[in-house]
Amino acid sequence: MKAAILHSLDRPLEIAQIPNPEIGTGEVIVDVVAAPVLPYANEVFNGQRRYPIELPIVPGCGAIGRVSAIGPDATHLKAGDWVFCDPTVRSRDDALIPDIALQGWSSRGEGGLRLQRYFHDGPFAEQVRVPTENAIRIGEIDSDEAGRWCALNVMLVPYGGLLSAALRAGETLLVSGATGNFGSACVAVALAMGARCVVAPGRNAQALDDLKQRFGERVRPVKLSGDEQADRERMQQAAPCPIDCVIDLLPPSAPTTAVRAALMAVRPYGRVVLMGGVGMLGGAGLDLPYPWIMRNDITIRGKWMYPTEAVTLMAGLIRSGLLDPGHFDIKTFPLVDANDAVSHAAANGGPFRMTVIRP
Protein backbone atom coordinates (compact mmCIF):
# COMPACT_ATOMS: atom_id res chain seq x y z
CA MET A 1 0.00 0.00 0.00
CA LYS A 2 0.99 3.65 -0.35
CA ALA A 3 1.91 5.57 2.79
CA ALA A 4 3.56 8.79 4.01
CA ILE A 5 6.55 7.93 6.21
CA LEU A 6 8.42 10.13 8.68
CA HIS A 7 12.01 8.84 8.74
CA SER A 8 13.63 11.66 10.72
CA LEU A 9 12.78 15.02 12.25
CA ASP A 10 14.87 16.94 9.73
CA ARG A 11 13.34 15.46 6.58
CA PRO A 12 9.93 15.78 4.93
CA LEU A 13 7.53 12.87 4.72
CA GLU A 14 8.41 10.25 2.13
CA ILE A 15 5.61 8.80 -0.01
CA ALA A 16 6.42 5.13 -0.58
CA GLN A 17 5.00 1.65 -0.97
CA ILE A 18 5.03 -0.45 2.19
CA PRO A 19 3.49 -3.85 3.04
CA ASN A 20 -0.20 -3.91 3.86
CA PRO A 21 -0.87 -4.26 7.61
CA GLU A 22 -1.52 -7.82 8.80
CA ILE A 23 -4.46 -8.50 11.07
CA GLY A 24 -4.22 -10.26 14.42
CA THR A 25 -6.68 -11.22 17.13
CA GLY A 26 -8.23 -8.14 18.68
CA GLU A 27 -7.52 -6.03 15.62
CA VAL A 28 -9.30 -4.52 12.63
CA ILE A 29 -7.98 -3.41 9.25
CA VAL A 30 -9.58 -0.21 7.97
CA ASP A 31 -9.41 1.29 4.49
CA VAL A 32 -8.63 4.95 5.18
CA VAL A 33 -10.96 7.33 3.36
CA ALA A 34 -10.00 10.58 5.11
CA ALA A 35 -7.41 11.48 7.74
CA PRO A 36 -7.17 14.89 9.42
CA VAL A 37 -3.91 16.84 9.52
CA LEU A 38 -3.67 18.74 12.80
CA PRO A 39 -2.52 22.37 12.58
CA TYR A 40 0.56 21.63 14.69
CA ALA A 41 1.58 18.50 12.76
CA ASN A 42 4.67 20.31 11.47
CA GLU A 43 5.73 20.98 15.08
CA VAL A 44 5.47 17.26 15.83
CA PHE A 45 7.32 16.22 12.68
CA ASN A 46 10.22 18.69 13.21
CA GLY A 47 10.62 17.85 16.91
CA GLN A 48 9.50 21.23 18.25
CA ARG A 49 6.77 19.61 20.36
CA ARG A 50 9.14 16.92 21.68
CA TYR A 51 6.61 14.14 21.30
CA PRO A 52 7.96 10.69 22.25
CA ILE A 53 7.73 8.91 18.91
CA GLU A 54 10.06 6.28 17.51
CA LEU A 55 11.03 6.60 13.86
CA PRO A 56 10.36 5.62 11.17
CA ILE A 57 6.61 5.97 11.53
CA VAL A 58 3.53 6.42 9.36
CA PRO A 59 2.03 9.39 11.24
CA GLY A 60 -1.47 10.73 11.61
CA CYS A 61 -4.01 11.02 14.40
CA GLY A 62 -7.46 9.56 13.79
CA ALA A 63 -9.30 8.79 10.56
CA ILE A 64 -12.60 8.02 8.91
CA GLY A 65 -12.69 4.80 6.93
CA ARG A 66 -14.43 1.55 6.07
CA VAL A 67 -13.76 -1.80 7.69
CA SER A 68 -11.76 -4.08 5.42
CA ALA A 69 -11.12 -7.08 7.70
CA ILE A 70 -12.06 -8.06 11.25
CA GLY A 71 -10.52 -10.42 13.78
CA PRO A 72 -12.26 -13.40 15.41
CA ASP A 73 -13.25 -11.39 18.49
CA ALA A 74 -15.39 -8.83 16.61
CA THR A 75 -19.11 -9.48 17.17
CA HIS A 76 -20.74 -6.37 15.65
CA LEU A 77 -18.33 -4.95 13.09
CA LYS A 78 -18.49 -6.17 9.52
CA ALA A 79 -16.68 -5.38 6.30
CA GLY A 80 -17.86 -2.13 4.76
CA ASP A 81 -18.90 -0.48 8.02
CA TRP A 82 -18.05 3.21 8.28
CA VAL A 83 -15.92 3.80 11.38
CA PHE A 84 -13.98 6.44 13.20
CA CYS A 85 -10.48 5.16 13.90
CA ASP A 86 -9.95 6.37 17.43
CA PRO A 87 -6.21 7.10 17.89
CA THR A 88 -6.48 6.78 21.68
CA VAL A 89 -5.12 3.29 22.29
CA ARG A 90 -5.31 1.96 25.86
CA SER A 91 -3.45 -1.03 27.25
CA ARG A 92 -5.70 -3.99 28.07
CA ASP A 93 -3.82 -5.51 30.99
CA ASP A 94 -4.69 -2.98 33.72
CA ALA A 95 -8.26 -1.71 33.84
CA LEU A 96 -7.48 0.66 36.73
CA ILE A 97 -4.40 2.41 35.33
CA PRO A 98 -4.20 1.74 31.58
CA ASP A 99 -1.26 3.06 29.64
CA ILE A 100 -2.20 5.30 26.72
CA ALA A 101 -0.71 5.96 23.31
CA LEU A 102 -2.01 8.05 20.42
CA GLN A 103 -1.48 5.75 17.45
CA GLY A 104 0.79 7.35 14.89
CA TRP A 105 1.25 10.41 17.05
CA SER A 106 2.47 10.29 20.66
CA SER A 107 2.43 8.35 23.92
CA ARG A 108 2.43 8.81 27.67
CA GLY A 109 5.16 7.27 29.82
CA GLU A 110 7.23 4.15 29.24
CA GLY A 111 4.15 1.92 29.13
CA GLY A 112 2.56 4.12 26.50
CA LEU A 113 5.74 4.00 24.44
CA ARG A 114 5.74 0.18 24.59
CA LEU A 115 2.11 0.22 23.45
CA GLN A 116 2.98 2.57 20.62
CA ARG A 117 5.69 0.24 19.40
CA TYR A 118 2.99 -2.28 18.51
CA PHE A 119 0.14 0.00 17.41
CA HIS A 120 2.73 2.15 15.74
CA ASP A 121 1.63 3.41 12.35
CA GLY A 122 -1.13 5.95 11.87
CA PRO A 123 -3.57 6.71 9.04
CA PHE A 124 -1.45 8.66 6.56
CA ALA A 125 -1.76 5.52 4.44
CA GLU A 126 -4.24 3.57 2.38
CA GLN A 127 -4.90 1.21 5.30
CA VAL A 128 -4.46 1.25 9.06
CA ARG A 129 -4.55 -1.53 11.66
CA VAL A 130 -6.32 -0.58 14.89
CA PRO A 131 -7.47 -2.36 18.05
CA THR A 132 -10.98 -3.77 17.63
CA GLU A 133 -12.41 -1.35 20.19
CA ASN A 134 -10.88 1.62 18.35
CA ALA A 135 -12.86 1.02 15.13
CA ILE A 136 -16.08 2.72 16.24
CA ARG A 137 -19.10 2.63 13.97
CA ILE A 138 -20.59 5.98 12.97
CA GLY A 139 -23.36 4.76 10.65
CA GLU A 140 -23.73 5.19 6.92
CA ILE A 141 -22.27 8.33 5.39
CA ASP A 142 -21.62 9.56 1.89
CA SER A 143 -17.99 9.06 0.88
CA ASP A 144 -17.83 12.73 -0.12
CA GLU A 145 -18.65 13.65 3.50
CA ALA A 146 -15.83 11.61 5.04
CA GLY A 147 -13.57 14.65 5.24
CA ARG A 148 -16.18 16.62 7.14
CA TRP A 149 -16.68 13.75 9.57
CA CYS A 150 -12.97 14.13 10.39
CA ALA A 151 -14.19 17.04 12.51
CA LEU A 152 -14.88 14.34 15.10
CA ASN A 153 -11.14 14.26 15.68
CA VAL A 154 -11.13 17.89 16.84
CA MET A 155 -14.46 18.03 18.63
CA LEU A 156 -13.93 14.84 20.62
CA VAL A 157 -11.01 16.29 22.58
CA PRO A 158 -12.94 19.11 24.29
CA TYR A 159 -15.98 16.81 24.51
CA GLY A 160 -13.88 14.50 26.67
CA GLY A 161 -13.10 17.41 28.97
CA LEU A 162 -16.73 18.50 29.20
CA LEU A 163 -17.84 14.94 29.97
CA SER A 164 -15.22 14.69 32.70
CA ALA A 165 -16.51 17.97 34.17
CA ALA A 166 -20.09 16.62 34.02
CA LEU A 167 -21.25 19.78 32.21
CA ARG A 168 -25.02 19.99 32.50
CA ALA A 169 -27.62 21.65 30.32
CA GLY A 170 -28.27 25.15 31.61
CA GLU A 171 -24.79 25.71 33.04
CA THR A 172 -22.38 28.48 32.08
CA LEU A 173 -18.98 27.47 30.69
CA LEU A 174 -15.80 29.48 30.13
CA VAL A 175 -13.52 28.20 27.36
CA SER A 176 -9.94 29.35 27.87
CA GLY A 177 -8.42 29.37 24.39
CA ALA A 178 -11.78 29.79 22.64
CA THR A 179 -10.27 31.22 19.45
CA GLY A 180 -8.00 28.23 18.82
CA ASN A 181 -8.57 25.01 16.93
CA PHE A 182 -9.78 22.93 19.89
CA GLY A 183 -11.24 25.89 21.78
CA SER A 184 -13.60 26.97 19.02
CA ALA A 185 -14.74 23.36 18.62
CA CYS A 186 -15.37 23.29 22.37
CA VAL A 187 -17.75 26.26 22.04
CA ALA A 188 -19.79 24.37 19.44
CA VAL A 189 -19.83 21.17 21.49
CA ALA A 190 -20.81 22.89 24.74
CA LEU A 191 -23.73 24.65 23.09
CA ALA A 192 -24.85 21.34 21.55
CA MET A 193 -24.77 19.84 25.05
CA GLY A 194 -27.15 22.55 26.26
CA ALA A 195 -24.88 25.09 27.93
CA ARG A 196 -26.78 28.24 28.89
CA CYS A 197 -23.95 30.30 27.49
CA VAL A 198 -20.24 30.10 26.77
CA VAL A 199 -17.80 32.84 27.79
CA ALA A 200 -15.18 32.97 25.04
CA PRO A 201 -12.01 34.93 25.89
CA GLY A 202 -9.29 35.51 23.33
CA ARG A 203 -6.94 38.00 21.71
CA ASN A 204 -8.14 37.52 18.12
CA ALA A 205 -11.02 39.95 17.67
CA GLN A 206 -11.92 38.54 14.26
CA ALA A 207 -12.17 35.00 15.63
CA LEU A 208 -14.30 36.23 18.54
CA ASP A 209 -16.65 38.01 16.14
CA ASP A 210 -16.90 34.85 14.07
CA LEU A 211 -17.94 32.81 17.12
CA LYS A 212 -20.63 35.36 17.95
CA GLN A 213 -21.93 35.35 14.36
CA ARG A 214 -22.02 31.55 14.21
CA PHE A 215 -23.72 30.88 17.53
CA GLY A 216 -25.49 34.07 18.55
CA GLU A 217 -26.22 35.46 22.00
CA ARG A 218 -25.26 32.28 23.84
CA VAL A 219 -21.60 33.15 23.13
CA ARG A 220 -20.12 35.97 25.23
CA PRO A 221 -16.79 37.10 23.68
CA VAL A 222 -14.14 38.75 25.86
CA LYS A 223 -11.16 40.52 24.29
CA LEU A 224 -8.13 39.85 26.48
CA SER A 225 -5.75 42.65 27.44
CA GLY A 226 -2.97 40.66 29.11
CA ASP A 227 -3.70 42.14 32.52
CA GLU A 228 -4.55 39.08 34.61
CA GLN A 229 -6.85 40.70 37.18
CA ALA A 230 -8.62 42.94 34.67
CA ASP A 231 -9.18 40.05 32.27
CA ARG A 232 -10.58 37.87 35.04
CA GLU A 233 -13.07 40.56 36.03
CA ARG A 234 -14.14 41.07 32.42
CA MET A 235 -14.74 37.33 31.97
CA GLN A 236 -16.91 37.23 35.08
CA GLN A 237 -18.81 40.32 33.99
CA ALA A 238 -19.48 38.84 30.54
CA ALA A 239 -21.36 35.89 32.03
CA PRO A 240 -25.06 36.32 32.86
CA CYS A 241 -24.52 34.34 36.07
CA PRO A 242 -21.62 32.82 38.02
CA ILE A 243 -19.38 30.63 35.86
CA ASP A 244 -20.00 26.98 36.70
CA CYS A 245 -17.13 25.41 34.79
CA VAL A 246 -13.86 26.40 33.09
CA ILE A 247 -12.01 24.32 30.52
CA ASP A 248 -8.49 25.30 29.45
CA LEU A 249 -7.36 24.42 25.91
CA LEU A 250 -4.57 26.95 25.45
CA PRO A 251 -1.49 25.86 23.42
CA PRO A 252 2.07 25.46 24.79
CA SER A 253 3.02 28.98 23.69
CA ALA A 254 0.41 30.66 25.93
CA PRO A 255 1.48 32.24 29.23
CA THR A 256 0.41 30.69 32.51
CA THR A 257 -1.08 34.04 33.53
CA ALA A 258 -3.74 33.59 30.82
CA VAL A 259 -4.64 30.17 32.22
CA ARG A 260 -4.82 31.47 35.77
CA ALA A 261 -6.96 34.46 34.82
CA ALA A 262 -9.57 32.14 33.30
CA LEU A 263 -9.33 29.37 35.88
CA MET A 264 -9.90 31.70 38.83
CA ALA A 265 -12.98 33.20 37.19
CA VAL A 266 -14.93 30.08 38.17
CA ARG A 267 -17.53 30.39 40.94
CA PRO A 268 -17.15 28.87 44.40
CA TYR A 269 -17.85 25.12 44.22
CA GLY A 270 -17.06 25.28 40.50
CA ARG A 271 -15.09 22.86 38.32
CA VAL A 272 -11.98 23.33 36.22
CA VAL A 273 -10.59 21.00 33.54
CA LEU A 274 -7.03 21.36 32.22
CA MET A 275 -6.54 19.99 28.69
CA GLY A 276 -4.13 22.48 27.10
CA GLY A 277 -0.42 22.41 26.50
CA VAL A 278 0.82 25.24 28.73
CA GLY A 279 4.13 24.26 30.33
CA MET A 280 4.97 21.53 27.82
CA LEU A 281 7.82 23.60 26.42
CA GLY A 282 9.21 24.59 29.83
CA GLY A 283 8.85 27.89 31.62
CA ALA A 284 6.89 28.88 34.69
CA GLY A 285 4.42 26.50 36.27
CA LEU A 286 0.78 27.22 37.03
CA ASP A 287 0.89 28.96 40.41
CA LEU A 288 -2.51 28.68 42.11
CA PRO A 289 -3.35 29.94 45.61
CA TYR A 290 -3.98 27.03 47.96
CA PRO A 291 -6.42 29.01 50.18
CA TRP A 292 -8.56 29.99 47.18
CA ILE A 293 -8.85 26.37 46.00
CA MET A 294 -9.58 25.02 49.47
CA ARG A 295 -11.95 27.66 50.83
CA ASN A 296 -13.94 27.89 47.60
CA ASP A 297 -14.19 24.10 47.27
CA ILE A 298 -12.83 24.19 43.70
CA THR A 299 -12.51 20.92 41.77
CA ILE A 300 -9.51 20.89 39.41
CA ARG A 301 -8.72 17.93 37.21
CA GLY A 302 -6.54 17.15 34.25
CA LYS A 303 -7.95 15.30 31.27
CA TRP A 304 -6.21 13.75 28.28
CA MET A 305 -8.42 12.82 25.35
CA TYR A 306 -11.86 11.23 25.91
CA PRO A 307 -13.59 7.96 26.85
CA THR A 308 -14.38 5.42 24.11
CA GLU A 309 -18.13 5.95 24.36
CA ALA A 310 -17.67 9.64 23.51
CA VAL A 311 -17.41 8.76 19.80
CA THR A 312 -20.83 7.09 19.76
CA LEU A 313 -22.37 9.90 21.81
CA MET A 314 -20.94 12.59 19.55
CA ALA A 315 -22.10 10.77 16.43
CA GLY A 316 -25.55 10.92 18.05
CA LEU A 317 -25.24 14.68 18.59
CA ILE A 318 -24.40 15.07 14.90
CA ARG A 319 -27.20 12.76 13.71
CA SER A 320 -29.71 14.64 15.87
CA GLY A 321 -28.76 17.98 14.31
CA LEU A 322 -27.57 19.45 17.61
CA LEU A 323 -23.94 19.53 16.45
CA ASP A 324 -23.11 20.55 12.90
CA PRO A 325 -19.75 19.50 11.39
CA GLY A 326 -20.72 21.73 8.48
CA HIS A 327 -19.15 24.60 10.43
CA PHE A 328 -15.77 23.24 9.34
CA ASP A 329 -14.15 24.48 6.15
CA ILE A 330 -12.32 21.48 4.66
CA LYS A 331 -9.26 21.56 2.39
CA THR A 332 -8.43 18.16 0.91
CA PHE A 333 -5.11 16.80 -0.36
CA PRO A 334 -4.24 13.44 -1.93
CA LEU A 335 -1.78 11.24 -0.05
CA VAL A 336 1.01 12.00 -2.53
CA ASP A 337 0.80 15.64 -1.46
CA ALA A 338 1.03 14.89 2.27
CA ASN A 339 3.85 17.42 2.80
CA ASP A 340 1.77 20.14 1.16
CA ALA A 341 -1.10 19.16 3.46
CA VAL A 342 1.12 19.56 6.54
CA SER A 343 2.28 23.00 5.36
CA HIS A 344 -1.28 24.06 4.57
CA ALA A 345 -2.51 22.93 7.98
CA ALA A 346 0.20 24.97 9.72
CA ALA A 347 -0.56 28.10 7.71
CA ASN A 348 -4.34 27.79 7.85
CA GLY A 349 -5.11 26.60 11.36
CA GLY A 350 -7.68 28.22 13.58
CA PRO A 351 -11.38 28.04 14.24
CA PHE A 352 -13.34 25.63 12.07
CA ARG A 353 -10.59 25.05 9.53
CA MET A 354 -9.49 21.54 8.76
CA THR A 355 -6.94 20.00 6.43
CA VAL A 356 -7.62 16.43 5.34
CA ILE A 357 -5.65 13.78 3.46
CA ARG A 358 -7.67 11.40 1.29
CA PRO A 359 -5.59 8.34 0.37
Rank of each mutant, 00 (worst) to 15 (best):
K2D: 10
K2T: 10
H7G: 09
S8D: 12
S8W: 10
A16L: 11
P21Q: 12
I23K: 10
G24N: 11
D31K: 14
P36F: 13
P39M: 04
E43D: 00
F45K: 00
Q48S: 04
P52W: 09
E54D: 07
E54A: 03
P56Q: 08
I57Q: 08
V58I: 14
C61D: 03
G62I: 05
G62P: 10
G65M: 07
R66P: 14
A69F: 13
G71P: 05
P72W: 11
P72D: 08
P72V: 02
A74K: 09
L77W: 14
V83Q: 06
V89D: 04
R90L: 11
S91L: 10
R92G: 00
D93P: 02
A95V: 00
L96D: 13
S106W: 03
G109M: 04
G112F: 03
L113M: 04
R114I: 07
Q116L: 12
Y118T: 06
P123W: 15
T132G: 04
T132D: 11
I136W: 11
E140Q: 04
E140K: 06
E140G: 06
I141Y: 12
D142P: 02
D142Y: 13
D144C: 05
E145L: 11
E145W: 15
L156W: 13
V157N: 07
Y159E: 03
L163C: 09
S164N: 06
A165G: 05
L167D: 02
R168M: 15
R168T: 07
R168F: 13
G170Y: 13
E171N: 12
L173H: 08
L173P: 08
S176Y: 05
G177E: 14
A178F: 03
T179D: 07
G183W: 02
V187P: 01
A188Q: 07
A190H: 07
R196W: 14
G202V: 09
N204K: 05
N204D: 15
Q206R: 08
L208N: 10
D209N: 12
D209E: 11
D210E: 15
D210W: 15
L211H: 07
L211T: 00
L211Q: 07
K212D: 04
R214E: 09
F215K: 00
E217L: 03
R218M: 08
V219Q: 02
V222Y: 09
V222F: 11
S225F: 15
D227E: 14
D227S: 08
D231H: 07
C241A: 07
I243G: 09
I243M: 13
L250R: 03
A254E: 12
P255I: 04
T257P: 15
M264F: 09
M264A: 01
P268Q: 12
V272W: 05
V272R: 01
G276H: 01
M280G: 09
A284N: 11
D287V: 14
P289Y: 14
P291T: 00
R295D: 13
G302N: 04
W304I: 00
M305Q: 03
M305G: 00
Y306F: 12
T308M: 02
T312H: 05
M314E: 08
I318W: 05
R319Y: 02
H327G: 04
H327F: 15
F328W: 15
P334L: 07
N339R: 02
P359N: 00
P359Y: 11
